[in-house]
């Protein structure tokens, strides 16, 4: 039995320790916002925050998680108004949208660490996230917008 701290709530999970967090989230606890894309840490669709750091949940066995704080897209904000979410909506970033929870989680982790990243830093932080639809130019724009939105929030 594992107790996972997800979006601020404890969840008891009676599964094998080698089960990746992705499948625990999706199949056992029904947090389906975190997506499967490759299962091998190659695409970023499954990105969540572990203690604030962007982490690929498809290659993260639950046995290594103790009291670490797990945040999924569902827990990124209460009302869907994290600056990243706001920017994504305002610029109509998604096409199919499937990769976007992972993209937003990577972007949010980046902004938490670096309040105003330049293009190169954005590319570096985001290059683990594939978008087959090709929304990269808008993601980049949206991250810049999100930095403005967060500084406005802080400023006000």
């Amino acid at each position: 039995m594992f107790t996972l701290n997800i979006n601020g709530k404890p969840n008891n999970v009676d599964e094998e320790g080698d089960m990746p967090l992705l499948w625990v989230l999706r199949d056992i606890l029904k947090y389906t916002g975190t997506k499967y894309g490759c299962g091998k840490g190659l695409c970023g669709a499954c990105t969540v925050h572990i203690d604030g750091l962007a982490t690929r949940s498809c290659v993260l066995p639950i046995s290594v998680l103790g009291q670490n704080k797990i945040t999924t897209i569902e827990g990124l904000s209460d009302e869907g108004d994290h600056p990243v979410q706001q920017a994504w909506k305002s610029l109509n970033v998604p096409q199919c949208g499937y990769c976007q929870p992972g993209q937003m989680m990577s972007a949010a982790a980046l902004l938490a660490e670096n309040a105003s990243p330049n293009d190169e830093q954005i590319e570096q932080a985001m290059s683990g996230n594939i978008c087959r639809c090709g929304t990269y130019p808008r993601i980049k724009q949206a991250i810049h917008l999100a930095t403005e939105l967060s500084s406005e929030i802080k400023g006000s």
Binding site: T32, G33, G80, W88, G97, Q100
Partner: peptide, 27 residues
């Protein structure tokens, strides 16, 4: 107009083929 599914996508609520859950479902 904004994307009809923009809010659901931004909050992880959008339902794709992978996400459908039925009671007593097997994988």
């Amino acid at each position: 107009v904004k994307l009809v599914d923009g809010q659901d996508i931004a909050t992880g609520k959008a339902i794709y083929g992978f996400d459908v859950e039925l009671e007593n479902m097997v994988y």
